[in-house]
């Protein structure tokens, strides 16, 4: 039997959800009997082949995030928004109170301890969006896994349910936005 293919990525996130994913600890070994990883920071594969499940951490703060998200949506049968940032923008969305110009000036010109003040302008840098957005504003999201981050148990629950062919659900005690 071929294995279930899972892709993961972190967009405008902190990789905390990926760290929490690894908190499944030894259960990952059992999981690997049934799944294999495609594009993911864990494999360093750069582009997504057709997958069964896509786990997307983080919201959308720049053009590259939108591009990657569309690739995931195109290639993954099931797309899961993982964590607060993917669901409502989270901490990065706190910059939505300010213009991009104000953010750049604070970070690269006027911030405390800035050496050689200069706003980066390398053409390879992805352009920032004017605001940070949650995933569901751009693509259809199949499931949401809230939490900052979702616990290893929450990851294990949603993946176990999906592997068993069940509609995934979380016990209420595991539902957290923080």
């Amino acid at each position: 039997m071929s294995k279930i293919r899972i892709a993961t990525t972190s967009l405008a996130g902190c990789f905390g959800c990926h760290m929490s994913f690894l908190d499944m600890d030894e259960r990952l070994v059992g999981l690997l009997e049934y799944v294999e990883f495609d594009r993911s920071p864990l494999t360093d594969i750069k582009h997504c082949q057709p997958c069964d499940i896509g786990l997307v951490e983080g919201g959308l703060c720049n053009a590259e995030n939108v591009h990657v998200l569309r690739e995931f949506r195109q290639q993954c049968k099931i797309l899961i928004a993982v964590g607060a940032c993917a669901i409502n923008g989270g901490v990065p969305a706190m910059r939505n109170h300010y213009t991009v110009q104000e953010c750049l000036e604070e970070a690269y010109l006027n911030g405390v301890g800035v050496d050689n003040p200069m706003i980066p302008s390398d053409p390879e840098l992805p352009l920032l969006l004017s605001k940070v957005h949650p995933l569901h504003e751009v693509v259809r999201v199949d499931y949401y896994l809230p939490g900052c981050p979702p616990s290893g148990d929450a990851f294990f629950t949603i993946l176990s349910d999906l592997l068993a062919g069940k509609e995934p659900s979380l016990p209420k005690a595991m539902l957290h936005y923080d």
Binding site: I87, N88, A93, K172
Partner: peptide, 12 residues
């Protein structure tokens, strides 16, 4: 209520 997401586009 088992709310998972805000469903609507956020106002910020």
């Amino acid at each position: 209520f088992g709310m998972l997401d805000g469903h609507f586009p956020p106002f910020y």
